[in-house]
């Protein structure tokens, strides 16, 4: 069974391009397109896609607003944006996206990422992994007042570092002598920490990190 996908982007040209690329992938079926927050919310209600490819910059409040209006649901969001600004990436992940890829991603890679998100896993690009490491850096030494959520385990850090170095999931698994499934578990845990971490500095981190 193929994954039912909704494409949300305000550029018709880009939607057409993604649709064409995904049509080559047998595992993905594009059920609808939407161009702004309102049409996206309506389309999600009408089609119940499994995965929404969500542009971060959207008329009507952006991708985060779509996820806020949908609320908890079975639909999973994969952010797909030209922007790789830290604020956008972290903001979207914290709003509930299961992954963040930039628009330069190739068709097969995108289909692969969609499949993974549909299966409940997280998708980290090297850049996103770098942001995560940066955001959680420094908290390792800090006394663990705020429990485990504010820290990555040593293993999670290693996984993130390998992802940031450009390793595929399979290569990460091979390097750390663990199964691919375990890698995916680690990544989901990292994503959860990123979304749930009570450190309110985390969101501010993105804008502050340039002031190093």
């Amino acid at each position: 069974m193929s994954t039912r996908v909704l494409i949300v982007d305000d550029h018709a040209m880009f939607r057409a391009g993604v649709r064409a690329e995904l049509s080559a992938a047998p595992t993905v079926e594009v059920v609808a397109e939407a161009e702004d927050v309102d049409t996206a919310v309506a389309a999600i209600a009408a089609h119940h896609p499994e995965v929404v490819l969500l542009d971060v910059h959207l008329p009507g409040g952006g991708g985060a607003e779509v996820m806020r209006r949908i609320g908890p649901s079975a639909t999973r969001f994969l952010a797909l944006s030209v922007s790789d600004a830290a604020e956008d990436v972290i903001g979207t992940i914290r709003a509930g996206a299961r992954g963040y890829v930039t628009k330069t991603i190739t068709g097969p890679e995108l289909a692969d990422a969609i499949g993974r998100v549909a299966g409940g896993d997280a998708v980290f690009s090297p850049r996103l992994a770098g942001f995560v490491l940066d955001a959680f850096a420094g908290t390792i030494e800090v006394a663990a007042v705020d429990e485990d959520l504010d820290r990555l385990t040593e293993r999670e850090r290693e996984v993130m570092r390998l992802i940031a170095r450009g390793y595929s999931y399979k290569e990460v698994a091979g390097e750390l002598f663990i199964s691919v499934k375990t890698v995916e578990t680690h990544m989901s845990a990292v994503l959860r920490k990123l979304q749930l971490s009570s450190r309110h500095e985390l969101t501010r981190w993105a804008s502050d990190r340039r002031l190093l």
């Binding site: 090297p126 850049r127 992994a129 770098g130 490491l133 940066d134 850096a137 940031a164 450009g166 990190r209 190093l212």
Partner: peptide, 9 residues
């Protein structure tokens, strides 16, 4: 060339 930087100096 994809560059990812963590920390800076």
């Amino acid at each position: 060339v994809e560059v990812v930087t963590v920390g800076d100096l």
